[in-house]
Amino acid sequence: MGTSSERAEAARQGGHSAQLTAGGPGAPRMAPEDGRAAGGAQPPVALSPSRASDFQQCPLLYRFRVIDKLPEKPSAAATRGTVVHAVLERLFDAPAAERTAPGARAMVPGEWEKLLARRPELAELFADDADGERLSAWLAEAEALVERWFSLEDPTRLEPAERELYVETVLESGLQLRGFIDRVDIAPTGEVRIVDYKTGKAPRPQFAEGALFQMKFYALVMWRRGGAVPRRLQLVYLGSGDVVTYDPTEADLRGVERKLLALWEAIQLATRTGDWRPRPTKLCGWCDHQAHCPEFGGTPPVYPLQVRPAEPGGEPQGRMGAI
């Protein structure tokens, strides 16, 4: 069956250059919410934090990734993040005394080779690197991120209850929520801490809510699965050496649930009507789909699902930007 990281990769949401998939780290991740069968496209059936963020950022981007499954170029930064995550997961396979920074750094090249074996196309990242200088610098950056983690947490004092934990629940409304959690710690008293590793820098306070939304999503799923509200949510930013924590309440999670229900209604409306409006932002400059985007003079692929006109008085899908 492979490691937990490999099993996670086989089910994670796909169609994103910042993510990987089936067959272990490095294969294209298949999104549980994609609902894509062998016979062709199908409507989305569930929601993950990544896809929820996609729709909030740009409904058309969500369509390109979930409905159309348009390919995206591999990203050196995202691929490095996958390697770092694999090291931080597998480090806990070793006895506590052997979880050292030098040992973790030494794991980086091996995890990169495993990833490359599963996704040979990632070699394109360094296709013009004949002398290997860029690859060496890239690996050194990954090693530095791994080493920085040791200044933020002490793995010799941690025994995670779960790593790369797949969580899923169905709300009373019927909405399925799914996702993967990097690490779950359980205190002797039973209190739960959800931990997520970020290889980038901590956002400025005014932009921190986006990352917390992902963590609250996970907390909501765990709570609705029949557990208690997690005691703490912890974001570990390896790029800047920051640790951000948040202690959620039931009121917080009920608010997230309401937002997700409204978001899902908007996604269902767009799915029925085929009305996936682009939402231009500064992030458009990093989008791989400009050739298909009307904002850049492109034409989206033929919509592969049956279109039904919006009901009179229906909420315009394009007004979901506040969620």
Rank of each mutant, 00 (worst) to 15 (best):
T156W: 09
L177W: 04
T156H: 11
P160C: 03
V167E: 08
G179L: 07
S173F: 04
D154S: 09
E159T: 15
E159S: 10
T156P: 00
V167N: 02
I181H: 08
T169F: 03
V167H: 05
E172W: 01
R163F: 03
V170K: 12
D154K: 13
G179D: 03
L165I: 01
T156G: 11
R157C: 01
Y166M: 02
L175Y: 14
E164N: 10
D182F: 02
P155M: 13
V170H: 06
R183V: 14
R178T: 08
L158R: 15
S173N: 05
T156C: 10
L171I: 11
L175P: 15
A161K: 07
E162H: 03
T156K: 12
P160K: 07
G174A: 00
F180G: 06
D154L: 05
R163D: 08
Q176N: 05
T169G: 13
P160M: 08
E168W: 00
E164D: 07
E164R: 14
L158I: 07
D182P: 01
L171S: 09
L165D: 12
D182S: 10
L158D: 12
D182V: 04
P160T: 06
T169I: 07
E159I: 04
F180V: 01
P160D: 05
G174W: 00
E164F: 01
D182Q: 09
T169L: 05
E168R: 05
L171C: 06
P160F: 09
E164P: 05
L165F: 06
Y166E: 11
G174F: 13
I181R: 10
Q176K: 15
F180C: 06
S173M: 13
L175S: 13
L171E: 06
F180Y: 09
L165T: 03
Y166V: 08
L171Y: 02
I181P: 15
E162L: 01
F180S: 01
T169E: 08
R178E: 14
E168Q: 09
R157D: 05
P155Q: 15
T169S: 09
R183Q: 15
E168V: 02
E159P: 02
V167I: 13
R157Y: 11
L171R: 08
Q176V: 12
T169Q: 13
R178V: 09
A161H: 11
P155I: 15
E164C: 04
E172G: 13
L175H: 11
I181Y: 02
S173Y: 00
G179N: 04
